[in-house]
Design a protein around this nucleic acid. Sequence first.
DNA 1: GAAGTTTTGTTAAAAAATTCACATTCACAA
DNA 2: TTGTGAATGTGAATTTTTTAACAAAACTTC
Lengths: 212, 212
Amino acid sequence: MKSEHIPKATIARLATYIQVLSEFKREGTDVVSSERLAEACSVNSSQIRKDLAYFGEFGVRGVGYYVQDLITSIKRSLGIDRAWNCGLVGVGNLGRALLRHREFSRKGFNIRGAFDCDPYKIGEIVEGMEIVCSRQLPAKVKELSLEIGIITTPPERAQRAANYLVGAGIKGIINFAPSRISVPSHIHLEYVDFFHHFYAAAFHIRFAEHQE
Amino acid sequence: MKSEHIPKATIARLATYIQVLSEFKREGTDVVSSERLAEACSVNSSQIRKDLAYFGEFGVRGVGYYVQDLITSIKRSLGIDRAWNCGLVGVGNLGRALLRHREFSRKGFNIRGAFDCDPYKIGEIVEGMEIVCSRQLPAKVKELSLEIGIITTPPERAQRAANYLVGAGIKGIINFAPSRISVPSHIHLEYVDFFHHFYAAAFHIRFAEHQE
DNA sequence: GAAGTTTTGTTAAAAAATTCACATTCACAA
DNA sequence: TTGTGAATGTGAATTTTTTAACAAAACTTC
């Protein structure tokens, strides 16, 4: 197939597929059918085949998918077959947690720079990384080849952080701050808000009570 | 309208609406049209009206929506017009960060219990809360009226944490661990995986390069 | 090596979500 | 009081996403 526009939902599912496939691999499973993978991911098997078809043909008819090959193929499709250098702006509670989160480097996203505008924080070492003044972003983005900016400032400072990052030539921004920001259209912007999961849980629990 | 099944995407958008409406409120705006709210949220204005219609009629024709009223109405609709008690299982890096994250209580999700099975951690105080052995979950869930469980264990221990929580009578689970788990159908389960945002960014940045 | 089995990739159908379009309702002014 | 303008709520049209169905392809067995 190899199409142009890929749904956001497909990207999210591919992340799940990688996760489940890695578990299969750890268990020693070499080959898996879309049916079996679908069950483990709680999705429809056509869904999986369709999602993969956006990027190419990775399976063997009558056999299924070779687990390791499929992991590799999905990673290549997503562009995570190589490492990405990230810079984090806003070293508060959440920022610190992300800096310490092992999963980032494990997944190929290396946080190489930590920035803050608080003079009390500048110079402090977190996870072997020195916190640097946000004003130095342009120099550091070049020096460290940072491509993705992570915003973990308080909401009122998120836009300024975004401006710094954009000015420094970053290519994409992941905004963890609970506020909307605006960036030029050539910058890829993603909002992370895990609270909607809590809202969904609250809503469904309440709704279930109502049914009784 | 007042319908039964509400799309997941609607819940996520309602979270955005609350966020943007709160900003409007802070700026002193009393009334807002779906058009203006839509622009601030980067969605279609019909989308907003449709999303709200699932829960009732909150606007005034010819006028718009009263900002404070709409915030209140959305919160009531989602079931976050009251506080929810949460218990967190797995006090690693991420777990600690969430325990310290001010946003939780600000949004009405109070983390009242912290659990871990590591004897070195048990008894330690984090954010004024004593880390308790996971085996005590049943007692604590009752004692503290915990309704939502947060899993922040390593992936291989997520299922066990879920089992403990379910056995203790929790109503919903938010799983931050990068692994799939299974729970009885009456338990509401949400997966949090912010890495798919990084994948999406990586994919789009790569794709943009390809276009050049 | 032909027949049978399995499972993919893909087209067609169904379902769901989004957007459009407008009648309805409200505020305000003449 | 009636008319005008504005913006909601909603049914209809459109678009997108998901699911079903099946022909094509690769192994297996006889």
